[in-house]
């Protein structure tokens, strides 16, 4: 699969002491939807700022499209919005987008098409400063799509929006993703990432904690919830099972964490052989949120 962006050992130190990005490396492949997760101040925006040429890196490297073109040429094939929508307030939506077309060197004919996609066509001749935050954010997405980019980078696209606004943005992202555009989405709204992304990178305090598919991140951490009349005997029997890592008690239930995956049916028959009859057996997965909180704890 074609690599769109490759980051190797990237570091950023602000003002000689604030280490905002520590040795981050990852790759973005064509066609996937990536999420960058991390609490506020974890270095998400800084990392994006570096690859987008607005923040200077301290050390390390990044390479767009296999290093075939320099960064500012590569950026003409990228669509990005970061933090908040930045436009000239005294120009209309149409004029703002035409300006972006001139910068990117694309034809002005795309302007109406993209305004239509984000549902702003009727308001195209209104000044940007009259727009609501949700409309501004949608205009920013339209602007990022003007050049039909190979990759769309969105940094907190739903920040500060109302539920309708969040839904609209999410729907637009879905449409774009379904058209095969690679997307890199930085967010701390985890259900958003879980719903939209196929891969995640998790950052905390500038360090990369996890990189891989959303599926693996959740799947590797399944656990059982068990209940039986004789809790002590149940625990004793479980301790002797080779695939079990630890046992915890919560609200009268026994939670069983695994070293390696076992099927629910196998666990059930094992316990039955040990003369234990279960009252309650559920195999559960941590949601991305729980998994994320676990990863970024302390």
């Amino acid at each position: 699969m074609e690599t769109i962006l490759k980051i190797t050992n990237l570091n950023k130190i602000f003002n000689k002491h604030l280490h905002a990005v520590k040795n981050v490396s990852f790759e973005i492949k064509k066609g996937n939807v990536y999420g960058i997760l991390g609490p506020n101040g974890s270095g998400k925006s800084t990392t994006l700022g570096i690859v987008l040429n607005v923040v200077n890196k301290t050390s390390g490297d990044f390479e767009w499209f296999g290093g075939k073109s320099n960064t500012h040429d590569a950026l003409k094939k990228v669509g990005a919005i970061i933090e908040r929508p930045n436009f000239y307030p005294y120009m209309t939506a149409k004029e703002n987008l035409e300006l972006v077309c001139k910068i990117k060197g694309t034809s002005l004919s795309k302007v109406d098409e993209k305004l239509e996609l984000v549902g702003l066509l009727e308001r195209k001749n209104d000044k940007f400063r009259t727009y609501s935050l949700g409309m501004k954010q949608r205009l920013a997405i339209a602007s990022a799509l003007l050049n039909d980019p190979e990759i769309l980078i969105l940094d907190e696209p739903t920040n500060g929006l109302d539920p309708q606004g969040i839904r609209q943005i999410r729907d637009i992202i879905r449409i774009i993703a379904s058209q095969g555009t690679t997307i890199l989405l930085a967010s701390h709204l985890l259900d958003e990432v879980e719903k939209v992304c196929s891969h995640v990178v998790v950052l905390r305090k500038g360090e990369m904690l996890y990189q891989g598919s959303v599926h693996d991140m959740i799947e590797n951490n399944s656990f059982f919830e068990l209940k039986s009349d004789d809790k002590e005997q149940l625990k004793l029997a479980l301790q002797n099972h080779p695939s079990i890592e630890k046992i915890e008690e919560e609200e009268g239930k026994v939670l069983v964490y695994l070293k390696q995956d076992i099927a629910a049916k196998d666990l059930n028959s094992y316990l039955f052989e040990q003369k234990i009859v279960l009252e309650h057996l559920v195999k559960r997965k941590n949601s991305l949120e729980e998994q994320f909180l676990e990863l970024t704890k302390n």
């Binding site: 987008l52 040429n53 607005v54 950026l75 990228v78 930045n86 972006v100 910068i103 990117k104 060197g105």
Partner: peptide, 9 residues
């Protein structure tokens, strides 16, 4: 910032 992101060096 946006001009630079849009591809102006």
């Amino acid at each position: 910032k946006q001009n630079l992101i849009d591809g102006l060096s």
